[in-house]
Design a protein around this nucleic acid. Structure first.
Lengths: 345, 345
DNA sequence: GACTGGCACTCGGACGGCGGGACTGCTAAA
DNA sequence: TTTAGCAGTCCCGCCGTCCGAGTGCCAGTC
């Protein structure tokens, strides 16, 4: 299995096989290729080439008297060298744009809409994670008195991510005025710092115990956000897989669903993506997760502002319309990035 | 199709059919019934009764020489009069309890854990909506300056539900001090009121336009919560359906997934539940949503505090272990209610 | 009158043999 | 090097058969 580049005719044949197989899902024969795609050669010539392409690992033959289909390696060559991306047409843009809410109430709502749209325009399972910053800084903090023993701590992070926590107070009968004052102090001292900086900054010697307590809770909140970095937020479009003949067998579907419904696994999957490589395509067994063999991932990151990043992508059968999916994903990820930035400021 | 109560023998037979069919998924014959469940009668007697039960609509016969399976009506009778709920054993409780996080960071996290567990212990698709109150009152409000044209409005509702919104300001160059002052005024005037009361209360004549603007945004937030627009819906366990033989055919699965993945439909489904009836069971075509024929819902509400309610339930094939699912759901919903209350105060 | 044993009958599903068709690989000729 | 032709391979759908599970009904019994 050398990696020498294929000659022109082999390239044309591989390309034709991928295109036809992507459309039909049925192994392609030399006859079809000769009449439909490659009229300048006879089917016999093509047969010889096909046999050769099987030998060197770019095509597969399910059984002796069947046509050929691309192997993972064949898809890889196609994606790297032969694929011509389809431009995202005005019609598709008009289909995408209105689905992203102009004034979403929250990031979650936005991402959910994005997942829905992505599943729709790619006919696959979409996966979207929320925007995270590597070390979020504190932007605002406020405290509300709940009862004499509890208070609600509201923490606003850089990127306008809002978190709340009920905290138990060691000092009893703490009224709203005391808490408001406390919040003012906290804001003055801590705004603009990240978890590490806050934890290091020693509180003044004369600080009330309540202050130290609150500082600790704030650090905890920041830390938990940091830990949750690659938490999967949403996925959608599982039903799209049902339409694919390759999942006619339930075994396959079961294994894919196991991964999709298990956030931990999905997170693991997405965390491997290289953030600076644009749209990345992971084909079949290139992904070492055995349950996803037979599937491909098309992934990219969206950027909202300087630091904040999230992952967005698509999971579908290896027989996927890469030339269509890749640019659509790229387009949507840009729109999502913009929208998140608009929302979070 | 009269509704006269069944005599004792018919009841025993119906019960046995439901039990066996639930276990095996295969239509039950008179032989099996006579030897396994109802030794006091011969298979011939049972055959006569079976034929009668088919006539009056409690059983179905897929074809002439097949056994019998319960009709929707048969399940209904079973659920209403014959079913004996299984107690939730200590083992199951030990399985459930640790999965609900002791100190969840948010309601979302809690509900997601609940959905996961529910799917696991019922082997069905779980559905959970977030807690909502009928006419939530304002508890706290704060504003943070983002840039010279935008501010972040943070609204805390009764029940400690926190909402945020980026608002565009008509007055330019509004700094944080102005906004903090504004927030203080808003708190003084509006805390404790619901959307209607806030909308009615005319702002003072000398109020700055900024104030009126903010009031409007607050009303908008309250209203959207009231409309349940932002009700979180989480679901989990779709893969459990794959194991059921009734979904061997993809058509069925497709239709169910259409509903489950479409939040709007799911919400509609859940909104019909009667909040005071404990665990409710909706069997097959009792649900007018045609796509869910062949499926049953087991639903209930969980309560967190006086007013706040959410829905939690399970979707599975009509052939479901009702005597096991119902009490497990009841137990879990209580734990979820408690956990939400602890979290939101 | 209620119940039961027995029997003829029905029907679905598994099994196996049988082409038809879609491809292939190979060979020989251009 | 390409191509036409041809024999061979294998999948798949079709069809008839067989088997067994289960029924409905009838006649006999308690």
């Amino acid at each position: 299995m050398d990696t020498a580049p294929l000659d022109d005719r082999k390239q044309q044949i591989l390309k034709a096989v991928v295109r036809d197989y992507t459309e039909t899902g049925v192994p392609v024969g030399s006859q079809v290729l000769a009449t439909k795609y490659l009229v300048s050669w006879s089917s016999a010539t093509i047969r010889n080439e096909l046999a050769n392409l099987v030998d060197i690992g770019y095509l597969l033959q399910p059984h002796t008297s069947a046509g050929r289909m691309p192997s993972d390696r064949g898809y890889r060559y196609y994606v790297d060298f032969l694929m011509e991306e389809e431009a995202v047409g005005a019609a598709v843009r008009r289909q995408i744009d209105p689905t992203l809410p102009a004034h979403p109430a929250s990031v979650d709502e936005l991402l959910e809409a994005a997942a829905l749209t992505l599943a729709l325009i790619t006919d696959s399972v979409s996966i979207v994670t929320g925007p995270t910053a590597p070390a979020p800084k504190l932007k605002h903090v406020d405290c509300v008195s709940l009862d004499e023993r509890h208070a609600l701590l509201m923490v606003l992070l850089e990127g306008n991510m809002l978190r709340q926590q009920v905290v138990e107070l060691s000092t009893l009968s703490t009224d709203q005025d005391t808490l408001s004052q406390l919040a003012t102090t906290l804001r003055r001292e801590l705004v603009g710092l990240d978890a590490g900086a806050i934890a290091e900054a020693a509180p003044p010697a004369d600080a009330p115990p309540l202050l130290a307590e609150m500082v600790e809770h704030i650090v905890e909140v920041l830390r938990s956000v940091q830990r949750r970095q690659d938490a999967v937020v949403v996925h959608d479009g599982v039903r799209n897989l049902l339409r694919q003949p390759e999942f006619g067998d339930h075994e396959r579907l079961q294994q894919v669903l196991d991964v999709v419904e298990e956030e931990r696994l999905l997170g693991e999957l997405l965390s491997r993506i290289d953030v600076d490589k644009g749209v990345q395509i992971v084909i079949g067994a290139e992904n070492e997760m055995a349950k996803l063999h037979g599937c491909s991932l098309v992934l990219t990151t969206y950027r909202a502002g300087r630091q904040r990043r999230g992952t967005i992508g698509v999971l579908g059968p290896t027989r996927m319309r890469y030339p269509q999916v890749a640019p659509r994903l790229r387009y949507l990820s840009q729109r999502v990035g913009q929208a998140v930035e608009r929302l979070l400021g």
